[in-house]
Amino acid sequence: MNEKFKATLKSSETEDWLDLHVIRPFCYYCAVFFAKFDVHPNTITIWSMIIGAASAWFFAQGSWYYSLQETGSIWQGLIYNIIGIFLLMWGDIFDCTDGQLARMTGKKSRLGRILDGLAGFTWFFPIYVALVIRFYMHHDLEFQWLGIENTEQNTLIATGVVFVLALISGLWGLQGQQRLADYYIQVHLFFQKGEKGSELDNSTRQKEIYEQLPKDTPFYERWFQKSYIEYTKKQENVTPEFQKLMAKLHEKYGSSDNIPQEIRDEVRSQSLPLMKWNGLLTFNFREFWLFLFCLIDIPVGNFLWEIIGMGLIYWYVNHRHETFCKKIREKLG
């Protein structure tokens, strides 16, 4: 593996196979290109948000089954889906590129870290709204399977149910799952590389940063920072045993730099097998299922999968991580 390329990665241990061998190498060359023109990583992040969010319109129009019923051809709906897939993948490529560009050029910033964490939510919020609209417009197939009469009243009721599923899928599923996955990546990097090699944040420190912002700080930066406090609080709320472990380590050793290497190695060895499961909560695996359900023309299936299937993976990763954190803390006395 090229050393310059490796330097742009957080760690090969926290990347899944597709990212490490396909997406990240491609994004490295994108980062080299943007570095030549002195493009700031935050600019790439904003582009990724706009491009990824633009895919929502195409997913809303992407029903090939109903295109076949109305025009006698599947191509119109299929092409809309393909364009939506292309745009979302393009947004993801730029989302990967911004981090590699930041590490390549040294242009890291607190705002960049916050923007990067928001990118996926910026894509999926309009996409989920688009899928609810798509169900409202095209639901004959689902009504036939369930034996529901296709009336305006039934359509409104069913669309309301799908909207609730989209809310649960987005707020509890997507946001909660990706927030936890990102946190566990930073935890792993903290014990692998130390505090300087990770971006492991805590809400107390983020609140201090917010309170110390100068009065002339732009309103959007203040809003992002305040949102990030809540983001880190939610990460901490679902990892109580890890928080107790960190408190114990700070009580026993003071600075994080003083944590003995054998403890770091033990946490890392327990965390490493979970990284492949943790990776399933990030974009690539989630993207696959979204594309599949859109292509088979049952987009509501994506919400059910995210709540049930991804929810079980989330529970497994969280349970395993909390269990070994508790055992290590108890060994410390």
Rank of each mutant, 00 (worst) to 15 (best):
W305S: 10
I298F: 06
I296T: 04
F285M: 14
Y316D: 06
I308L: 15
V300T: 12
E287P: 12
G301F: 02
R320Q: 09
N284D: 09
D297K: 01
V300W: 06
N318E: 02
H321C: 05
P299L: 00
N302R: 11
F291K: 09
N284C: 07
V300R: 08
L295G: 07
E287M: 09
F293V: 02
N302L: 15
L312R: 13
P299F: 05
W315Y: 12
L292G: 07
G309T: 01
I313Y: 13
F285T: 13
H321L: 02
E306Q: 14
D297L: 01
D297S: 03
Y316N: 10
L292A: 09
L290D: 08
H321G: 06
F303P: 08
W305D: 14
R320F: 00
N284L: 04
F293Q: 09
G309L: 01
Y314C: 01
L295Y: 02
V317S: 05
F303C: 06
V317F: 04
F288E: 11
E287N: 13
I307W: 08
C294T: 11
I296C: 06
F285E: 12
F288V: 15
Y316C: 02
G309S: 06
I308H: 13
W315M: 12
I308A: 13
W315L: 10
I313V: 14
H319C: 04
F285V: 10
L312N: 09
G301C: 00
G311D: 09
F293D: 04
R320E: 03
L304Y: 10
I308G: 14
M310F: 15
H319W: 06
P299W: 03
E287L: 13
G309H: 06
F285L: 05
C294D: 05
W289P: 12
I307H: 11
E306W: 11
W289M: 09
F291T: 12
R320P: 00
L295A: 05
R320L: 02
I313A: 14
I298V: 06
P299H: 00
H319S: 08
I298C: 07
L304H: 10
G311A: 10
